[in-house]
Design a protein around this nucleic acid. Sequence first.
RNA 1: GGCGCGGUAGCCAAGUGGUAAGGCAGAGGUCUGCAAAACCUUUAUUCGUCGGUUCGACUCCGAUCCGCGCCUCCA
Length: 466
Amino acid sequence: MALRFYNSLTQTVEPFAPLSGNVVRMYTCGPTVYNFAHIGNFRSFIFPDILRRWLRTRGYTLDHVMNITDVEDKIIRDSAAAGKSLAEFTEVYTKAFLEDTAALRLERPERIVKATEHIPEMVAAIQALEKEGYTYVSDGSVYYRIAKFPTYGKLSHNDFSGIRSGARVDVDEYDKDDARDFVLWKAKKDAEPAWETPLGAGRPGWHIECSAMAMRYLGATLDIHTGGVDLAFPHHENEIAQSEAITGKQFVRFWLHSEHLSVEGQKMSKSLGNIYTLRDLTAKSYTLEAIRYLLASVPYRKKLNFTFDGLKAAATSIERLRNFKLRLESAHFPAGLNKSLVERTETAQKAFDEALDDDLNTAEGLASVFEFIRDINTAMDAGEFKAGNVVPALAFLDRFDSIFDVLMPAVKEGGLADQEIDALIAERTAAKKARDFARADKVRNDLAALGVILEDTKEGVRWKRQ
RNA sequence: GGCGCGGUAGCCAAGUGGUAAGGCAGAGGUCUGCAAAACCUUUAUUCGUCGGUUCGACUCCGAUCCGCGCCUCCA
């Protein structure tokens, strides 16, 4: 079966193809930069990364936009408390976010766009809404009138028909006509940061940011829009209301939402102290690859229980994958080609591809990889794996790693040079030959302490860095 | 209350109308000077509970219990 995704809009799995040509136009709701991103954030950002990689594997070109929300209530509050300008304050967390995502090997979207650099686009969008009669002003702020948009609720599948458009009870008590109406432009208050625009001094509402920037770069209709489940309502619902009111066209064809994660079975919360940033976890000496693996291994629409046992298990699984690759690359196999093992490789790749095509079922994809590894290891032990089988087997591993990206160890500073390691291995081999096992073991232990693991094989000593 | 998601072995989890993937952990074994790596065997008569449909359900339907998310800016 072809590539398909679960579309939140239709609540069904649908075959995917871009609207036009080979280019997938995609938008991801990015971070609000008022703090360091946590493990839950990264779960929702690893999902578009896997998605990107798989779309490219399937031959598509990407035009992927991610926003940075760098003006917003909490940012204003916290930057004021820190006595910093908006720009100074957000720069720190924007930089940290980009570093963290790079450390997790998340591909950079084609464009990363900042809200504060697109105020004119937002103003224009609001003016377009104004012209069509979708807005009203209250206390200097501009609001979106939801009653004007009959299909409001189609993404979150909520029925808002019970809300009366004329239910404006008391103007003095409520600044909105309708409880569901949302702000497009917030009038400047006190010393808040503000932009002087035809709409008056103020700043954009959150929802209009994404609509304006998405349409600015991707046009009226996007192929894919991603975000966490919590954003479906009201944020994405409001994006639809804004964009479709302006263009009269369908805003997004495929809405893909990633589930949240819990930590040790509990919701992340400040009181539980279980909100972990990448820095927290690496400080506990968990590796970035293990974090990436754990986050990627559970399909994006499933709630993921993030545990420290899970992180250790992920690290062990990666070891197994790397050991297999090392064996493929370093062992000597008899000349020739085992055709049935070539077929086994093809079967594995087919299973892997089918799993990813099926709404990015990474868990099932992994299963196909591990089954393959077990079978090939068995064949190697039996001497049935031939030199000619190395290339196809490595090609399959490469395909796996082009999506999961966990096989290459992160580069560590310092440590021994290869030549020093080889010299010590030679010394140990000599000691072994002389049956001086105490000496041999000391060398091995010393190297292990430096993060270099030795393994004796039939063809000599094999080593790897940990 | 409305909308949505989920409850599968010690843990993380896939899956399907035809008789339970995979990873980690545990136990035993092979190999090894010892390790490591690898392999083999083993660990769910059962998929929250109770009914129903069916030749047959964990998979469909109903009920019920439990957990979770959203329902004014939280990934």
